[in-house]
Design a protein around this nucleic acid. Structure first.
Lengths: 134, 134
DNA sequence: CTGGGTGCAAAGTATTTGCATGAAC
DNA sequence: GTTCATGCAAATACTTTGCACCCAG
């Protein structure tokens, strides 16, 4: 808990129980949807409003404190901002897992004449996870 | 036009003027949103309904005839299914461009112990396009 | 104390559905 | 002629906004 409070302070975001609960969930699950955040917190904190979840997610995205993850076939997910990484996404169960792979090499194959300057690379691997394969 | 009719037939989708118009736009623009499809077609074909656009997009996705593209900061886009490719996305003007790069090598860096079997890899490069850079 | 956050209700936007009519094959 | 698509309206889902009240700093 203390660690989440410190995180919020560093990003100059006011500390509230709602925010701590949201961050705690993101940290625990890695990637989570608005709906799931709302329902999980609501269970132990019934006064929580869906609007508050949205407002906080937007505020934390503005501060680059969390990141939005759009995945074909799934609701948007949110994760704590951390070192660059890619995602493994199971097409059967929906599981999302982080992988750290080097994407620097990829950029070299972009045609120079495109004149495109890359700031960030996003890689998603779709497939079957260990559990679903067996 | 004939080429689009052939395409639809191959995928066993009934040919209608609405569908031809949608496909023609996707082919022309490469990547286009529901809203843009609706507004562009509506201009010359006023009876078109938004529900029809949605129904057709869903039908064509079910037939793997078109693909959905989710991009952080933009509305969903749709493109005709074609050979595997990646996308350059300009964070200033929103331009989306196809690039053909080899993503096979990437998979090698996924830890074997993850037990994940990759079926498809999606790569998005975010950055600045030639026009916006100058 | 003061500013910003919360919750509620309402508005706004996006997407889906049911059904009667009409077009494709 | 039969099947399936279209258009409209209504329903549902998703997200944002305004405002009165309350809590963190």
């Amino acid at each position: 808990m203390q660690k989440y409070m410190t995180l919020l302070k560093e990003h100059q975001i006011k500390i509230t129980p709602q925010r701590l609960a949201i961050i705690e969930l993101m940290d625990r699950y890695g990637h989570i949807s608005v709906r799931d955040i709302y329902e999980k917190i609501k269970a132990t904190f019934p006064s929580l409003s869906l609007a508050t979840v949205y407002k906080n997610i937007n505020a934390m995205m503005d501060s680059d404190f969390i990141k939005e993850l759009k995945i074909v076939g799934q609701d948007n997910k949110y994760e704590l901002a951390k070192e660059r990484h890619s995602h493994l996404i199971c097409q059967k169960c929906g599981m999302i897992e982080d992988v750290h792979i080097d994407t620097q090499g990829l950029q070299k194959s972009i045609p120079v004449e495109s004149g495109f300057r890359v700031a960030e690379t996003s890689v998603q691997f779709f497939g079957t996870c260990k559990q679903c394969a067996s």
